[in-house]
């Protein structure tokens, strides 16, 4: 196991470096540069102004040198400096990370628990009313665009019913502390995390249901029933556990997007997270900040891939034996 982890970590670091180099060139393919964007926003700009900005951004250096400098700072675990925001990239990302993790983490938990539970229920009642209702609902959430669900949720629950705040992380100027603040944040969290979670919930429902129905027809399940086990036990210990592998794979994929995967939700709900930071950095061609977010989110994807592989081995010991 230790050897496996070490090998995978080594590979992961190489992949990360390759991603950094690739991204470095990829974002420079987009037209324009940060200096022009800032000059553009100023509504005025002469050559001197743009030249000064280019120098500040380090864009006056040859490209290979820029890459070399960037790689050196990455290897010393320094994500660089965002000239535009006048702050180290690491700090900008760390500032936004808690909000994003809270949102995506909550959405992850909601979608996984609800998805597996509803999927298992649907499989058990296959062909009956509960199954039809759950499957139809899942299909609806699966097919509806996220931003539309978000806007409709805002219109219904915030504008019409006035039950929940429409946007933001907490009440600005509310002055809450301690538990009151936690409750305030939780209220703000409901709509974005639900809309973000619904799509993945639908995926988990469909995956769990299909996988369980497949396993339910296998011989060992008949054997378990023949042993005289109760139906609940059969479903839980024999069917569900063996049906979970594809769900774990998907959950690993979703977990990989925990850092950067909520751009739309964060935008609609004005949630101050990483996704928005990345999107704005992209529009503003803030190269260092954009690369920084890419590095962090690729690292997360690699990490969660590794975690998924470890979980495989726990859920299904046959995998370890085979490798």
């Amino acid at each position: 196991m230790a050897l496996f982890l070490a090998r995978r970590l080594g590979k992961g670091i190489l992949v990360l470096l390759a991603i950094v180099v690739l991204n470095f060139f990829l974002i420079r393919l987009a037209p324009g540069d940060p200096a022009l964007v800032m000059a553009g926003e100023a509504g005025a700009g002469d050559e001197l102004y743009v030249a000064q900005l280019r120098e500040k951004f380090g864009l006056d250096q040859p490209l290979p040198l820029q890459l070399g400098l960037y790689l050196r700072s990455i290897l010393s675990l320094d994500l660089g400096y965002s000239v535009r925001q006048q702050m180290p990239v690491g700090r900008l990302i760390l500032d936004r990370l808690p909000a994003t993790l809270l949102l995506t983490g909550t959405a992850f938990l909601i979608s996984l628990t609800l998805g597996v539970a509803l999927g298992a229920l649907a499989a058990r009642r296959a062909g009956r009313l509960a199954d039809t209702a759950i499957t139809a609902l899942a299909l609806l959430f699966y097919a509806t665009p996220l931003f539309w669900v978000s806007l409709m949720a805002i219109i219904v629950f915030s504008v019409r019913l006035d039950w929940l705040p429409a946007f933001g992380f907490e009440t600005v100027g509310g002055g809450y502390t301690g538990l009151a603040r936690a409750a305030d944040i939780a209220r703000h969290l409901v709509l974005p995390s639900l809309t973000l979670g619904l799509f993945f919930m639908a995926v988990y429902v469909r995956m769990t249901r299909a996988s369980m129905l497949e396993v339910a027809g296998l011989d060992f399940v008949k054997t378990a029933r023949a042993k005289g086990l109760r139906e609940g036990t059969v479903q839980r210990r024999h069917v569900l556990r063996n049906a979970l592998l594809p769900v774990v794979t998907l959950a690993g994929l979703q977990a990989g997007t925990l850092v950067g995967g909520a751009i739309l939700t964060e935008t609609v709900f004005a949630w101050p997270g990483i996704g928005r930071l990345m999107y704005e950095a992209l529009l503003q061609r803030d190269y260092n900040l954009l690369l920084g977010v890419f590095v962090v989110s690729s690292a997360m994807v690699l990490l969660f891939n590794l975690v998924t592989d470890v979980i495989y081995r726990v859920v299904d010991p046959r995998i370890e034996a085979a490798s």
């Binding site: 006035d162 004005a270 928005r276």
Partner: peptide, 18 residues
């Protein structure tokens, strides 16, 4: 000064009195 990145959400912010 509230930072609200989506235009529709900004309209909602005014409608709901935020």
């Amino acid at each position: 000064w509230h930072v609200i990145p989506d235009a529709a959400s900004r309209a909602v912010a005014f409608e709901t009195g935020k």
